[in-house]
Computed example of a mutant assay.
Amino acid sequence: MSTIINVKGLAKSFGSLEAVRGVDFDVEQGSLFAFLGPNGAGKSTTIDMLTTQLKPDAGEATVAGYRLGRDNDGIRSAIGIVFQDSLLDPLLTVEENLLVRGSFYKLSRSELKAAVARAVETAGAGDFLKRPYGKLSGGQRRRADIARALIHTPQVLFLDEPTTGLDPQTRQNVWTTIRRLQKERGMTIFLTTHYMEEAAQADRIVVMDHGKVLAEGTPYELKERYATDMLKLKPHDAEELAAYLQARSASYTVASGIFHIPVAETVRALDIIDGCRSNIAGLEIVSGTMDDVFLHLTGTEVRA
């Protein structure tokens, strides 16, 4: 898989505040890439630079083969952006909004109609094409926003917290659209999200805080490095289980009669279970999550 975004030493300050402090990362073509970090981590500033909305102080980047600062028009032609706050007019219908936005790309009338039709079909926005944008549900608005970003068939789609505030079913519908773009169109998706279960679906993740990249890897790699699995045991005899764990120098906590025993990896739980099998009334093994990774790296729970 080839690299479609390459970032080296990108930096940006606002007065004495170093918002982005020399970050490096790559995004592979056709991948779903998740960019994570708490509020104030520097994510938005980084994205604003990559999408040519903000000039970097230092470093370099290429997006779809175009060099940032030298080929900004090329970058803008190669990307689509779905902002957290919509840019569409609430009084116009979805179709009217898309035609207005599409007119910025200097297409002929027939090319514009064809481009809007493709974008609407891909984003699944056809059912509410004639309705005013301001009358749509949250999920419908998101699909209309995605259609707006797809009119010029971008190679990279930037999604800034695309499902924030949506109910679970609507979030799933939006994700179906996102996955279809990636799989059927080969589009690269650059995602920021506050939902860790969404980040866990990514092909690769970068975690950022205080303007720096803290870690990067696949969800599996990050969970292996920074998350801990948990063995939960309900014993017949609590004192016996406590003595057994202490003899093994195994750390544990007890809550509501349940022993919580951290294990480096799931298979390690089997050794503990085998040694106290007759004393087990119930058990559960909980794998480490992206929430654990985030907390370990940033020291804070993710905030919406």
Rank of each mutant, 00 (worst) to 15 (best):
D57N: 14
T170F: 00
Q84N: 10
K113H: 13
F104A: 14
S287H: 15
Q172S: 15
N39F: 00
D209G: 05
K8G: 01
F128N: 09
R179N: 15
F158K: 11
K55F: 08
V116A: 11
H194A: 05
G138P: 11
A64V: 15
R141P: 03
E198K: 01
M290P: 07
L159M: 11
G134T: 11
F104N: 08
D292A: 06
V63D: 14
E121K: 14
V263F: 10
T289A: 10
M1C: 04
A125L: 08
H260P: 03
D291A: 09
T46M: 04
S108Y: 09
E240I: 13
A215F: 08
V286C: 10
V94H: 03
I205K: 04
A61L: 06
L68G: 03
G139W: 01
D73Y: 01
I47H: 04
T163S: 07
A41V: 03
A247P: 02
M49V: 10
I81V: 15
I47T: 13
L107D: 02
G42F: 01
I258E: 12
E184H: 09
G80I: 00
E95K: 13
R303L: 00
S256P: 00
L181M: 12
T289K: 05
E301Y: 00
L17D: 12
D271F: 00
E216H: 10
A123V: 09
M187Y: 10
A147H: 08
T300L: 08
K106L: 10
Q155R: 13
P154M: 02
R185A: 01
L87W: 10
V120N: 05
S16R: 15
D203N: 14
D203S: 03
A115H: 09
V82I: 03
V206I: 08
G275V: 01
F294A: 09
L88H: 04
G59H: 06
T298R: 10
M49F: 01
A115Q: 11
D209A: 12
A144G: 05
A125R: 01
E197I: 04
L270V: 15
M290D: 04
W175V: 09
E18F: 03
Q155S: 11
G74I: 02
S249M: 02
L99Q: 09
R70N: 04
I280P: 11
F104Y: 15
R179C: 01
L112E: 07
Y252V: 07
G65K: 12
A115N: 11
L159K: 06
A19G: 06
A304P: 13
L157R: 03
Q182W: 03
K223M: 12
E216G: 08
M290T: 06
R204S: 10
V100S: 03
A269D: 11
A34S: 14
A115L: 03
A242F: 02
S137G: 04
H210K: 09
D291C: 09
N6Q: 15
L32N: 04
